[in-house]
Design a binder for these strands. Sequence first.
DNA 1: GATAAAGTTAGGTGGTATCTAAATTTAAAC
DNA 2: GTTTAAATTTAGATACCACCTAACTTTATC
Lengths: 136, 136
Amino acid sequence: MLTETEARYLLFLYRRQEEEGREVGTVALAREMGVRPATAAQTLRKLAAKGLLRYRPYRGVEFTPRGRREGRELLRKHRILEFLLWGVLGCDPRTACREASSLLSASTSLVDSLCRALGHPSTCPCGKPIGRCGGR
Amino acid sequence: MLTETEARYLLFLYRRQEEEGREVGTVALAREMGVRPATAAQTLRKLAAKGLLRYRPYRGVEFTPRGRREGRELLRKHRILEFLLWGVLGCDPRTACREASSLLSASTSLVDSLCRALGHPSTCPCGKPIGRCGGR
DNA sequence: GATAAAGTTAGGTGGTATCTAAATTTAAAC
DNA sequence: GTTTAAATTTAGATACCACCTAACTTTATC
């Protein structure tokens, strides 16, 4: 459904905008993603076309319910993986965060198994909350 | 360096050809990869262009030293991940194999950490040998 | 040698991610 | 209120990737 790039953008936006409550504009998004503003805008349009964001030109984006669900799920995946890398493998939090990003292709059911095996941890290495596990 | 598809082809070829010693032709490769022979041939050419295979038209492929190293590494990654999913998370071997394939984007250093944390297991769930860990 | 199977090549399609250049809108300064 | 700077958007181009079909070539078999 989502390409890898789209997922990366959506996760970033979710973290900033829905969890931290900080608005993020196209230029700032582009800077974080390491691309030009035009590129970021195009990805926003694509995410909107897939029904995950509402995109009003010049006014910014807001999450649709589906987008919120998807973003929450991506963030949960990321944090469970971080927890694994840090708590079990002994990575430092920074490494854990970086490496977790390269594992986001893990399926939801795998992450659920992982969550169970780790005893349903409630926070990631930096103390941010890990959401609810589907299998609980 | 390698695209995801190229890595998938190389891993398959390595397993069949270098580990099991069974030659695999273009048509058979294509069938396994779920594509047409022309597509498989194109990927072989790309792997050759990247210096991992020697490709002699109509005569088949053989691994270069670099290709062998790369293939061995991919196979080790796969088996360590399988071991994790099966031995720690309780997946059945079939699921472990499938899910491991979706995690091959993991970095070598991460897989090394994982290997260490798992006590340097010597075989994957189906009993095949896991190669040497760089950090040992 | 004829033929079937395997393999190859050329050329085309569709999708993704990126860019530049040019327009537009917004917001802030005067 | 106008001007101006910054943010944003759009259009159009490029490059790469993975796949395909169609047509050709080689190899091996009878």
